[in-house]
Amino acid sequence: MLGYTIKRLLWAIPTLLGVSIIVFSMMHLAPGDPALVMLGEHASKESVDALREQMGLNKPLIEQYILFLTNTLQGNFGTSTISGEPVLYEFLERFPATIELSLVALTFATIVGLFAGILSAVKRYSVFDYAAMSTALAGVSMPVFWLGLMLIYLFSVELGWLPVSGRLGYEFDIDHVTGLFLVDSLIAQDYEAFWDALKHLILPAIALGTIPMAIIARMTRASMIEVMKEDYVRTARAKGCTKMQVILIHALKNALMPVITVIGLMLGTLFAGSILTETTFSWPGIGKWLVNAVNQRDFPIIQSTTLIIATMFVAVNLIVDLLYALVNPKVRLG
């Protein structure tokens, strides 16, 4: 197992190097001198030169890349060219918002997805099955930003039930301890703020969680149907278990194996989806921040943040793989 773990860890290195090269070259090969684009019509020869110098664009590309890499390895993620703030400081200030949204969206996706999947499998070819599965199909196909806008129009503008955007009403002010508002408001024992933060979470969590929810539902259904055909389920039935016992104890436990893997990997999808969701709902997380940085060609932010996210993605994959290997010897020996 140790050998397998080391092998997998070493494999992560070329992956991350590859990511860093792609990110770096994509930004630098994009047409147009970034200094010129930033200054626009106001660009005079002197100001362009000064800005290029300041952004470190005068050095050869390979030198810029090596500098970026060595700095990153030393934990120095650079300084934003726009705000002059350290990238890590800005990242950490926004990261909790993204974590909170992703976790709530994942919880929503898991609960609803599992429930719909199990019910569809058990009541196969029923009206509920058809309804749930077509909803799931629609869910997978719907663009996040469109769904977000539709939810806003229906629930916030027309019905007025939920807030339009943001994380917390402006009348509330809670201390940022963890950065997760649901937790922070509970720490401060400000239940009104908790309720307000929860209300702000509902629509973006639905928008972000719909695709994972649909995937989980379809996956659960397929897996349940598969398992229900197994001999041990028949045996359970034969020995007189109730229907509930058969479904929940014998079938579900086994059916969940592949589903759990998918849920683990879904965290990556959620990060990607959060870029669109955060922009739509003005959610002050890293997704929106990153889009902004791309628009303003803030190289240090784009490079470092993409690398941080890629590292997390690789780490999650690694953990899932290792867990898999732990339960399934075939993987680590094969």
């Binding site: 806008l149 916030s156 503008v157 007025g160 807030p163 339009v164 943001g166 402006y170 929106k288």
Partner: peptide
């Protein structure tokens, strides 16, 4: 005085219509 960031133009308009 509060400056609130609402990136999407349509969403910002929705906030105004909602009176928030």
């Amino acid at each position: 005085l509060i400056f609130k960031v609402i990136t999407n133009n349509s969403v910002r308009a929705a906030e105004l219509k909602a009176g928030s």
